[in-house]
């Protein structure tokens, strides 16, 4: 794992180029995280921006006791969760219709462009999206998610289950569209 100590010290000592360099090293990975938590690229950009402003504001508090990338990622995830929490007030959760179970998602995940995978995650209702990201991508337990989002563990489990179900169906539909279009484009 890359050691950021020098570049952090340069940032703290007022080197004007250092923040830009730090941003360039970490922004792509963090933008990937933002995209998964956001409903669209616009929101992801806002969260990336707010996340890095927080990172630079709190840089002096980083104690070099763990991975810097992990610390930044934690901030980005928190900003994304905060953003979603606020939006829950205004965005009613679209209770999606019960979808039939689907199979064959393996092939879809393996073959669909990664941008399309992100897109189907973005299309999840906000709470399902948060639970799925925290559980699958960040490795949180249901009890940690329940504390983080202020929901019960049962709700976290059922949200994850619903998220998977929706993803399977969407991937199947998406993949069949892609294949269909590819056939015509050949």
């Amino acid at each position: 794992m890359e050691d950021f100590r020098d570049i952090i010290d340069a940032c703290l000592s007022g080197d004007h180029r250092a923040p830009g360099e730090l941003y360039r090293k970490l922004a792509p990975k963090m933008y990937g995280v933002c995209l998964r938590y956001a409903k669209d690229t616009h929101e992801a950009e806002d969260n990336l921006q707010e996340g890095f402003i927080t990172v630079f504001s709190k840089l002096k508090d980083f104690r070099h006791e763990g991975s810097f990338e992990g610390w930044v990622r934690r901030i980005i995830v928190n900003v994304s969760l905060d953003s979603c929490r606020k939006k829950q007030q205004l965005l009613y959760v679209d209770e999606m219709k019960k979808l039939e179970s689907a199979t064959g998602e393996d092939e879809a995940i393996a073959h669909l462009p990664v941008e399309d995978l992100v897109k189907v995650i973005q299309e999840l209702p906000p709470r399902y999206r948060m639970v799925f990201n925290l559980y699958v991508m960040e490795g949180y337990s249901h009890s940690e998610i329940s504390r983080e989002l202020g929901i019960s563990e049962g709700a976290s489990k059922s949200d994850l289950s619903r998220a998977r179900e929706i993803l399977r169906n969407k991937l199947k539909v998406h993949y069949s569209d892609v294949r269909h279009n590819r056939r015509y484009s050949l």
Partner: peptide, 18 residues
């Protein structure tokens, strides 16, 4: 299996921000 597939594909997803 589904989780692993997502983790594998998205784990190294590093798009260039605008």
């Amino acid at each position: 299996h589904l989780d692993d597939l997502f983790r594998e594909r998205l784990g190294n997803f590093t798009p260039e921000p605008p």
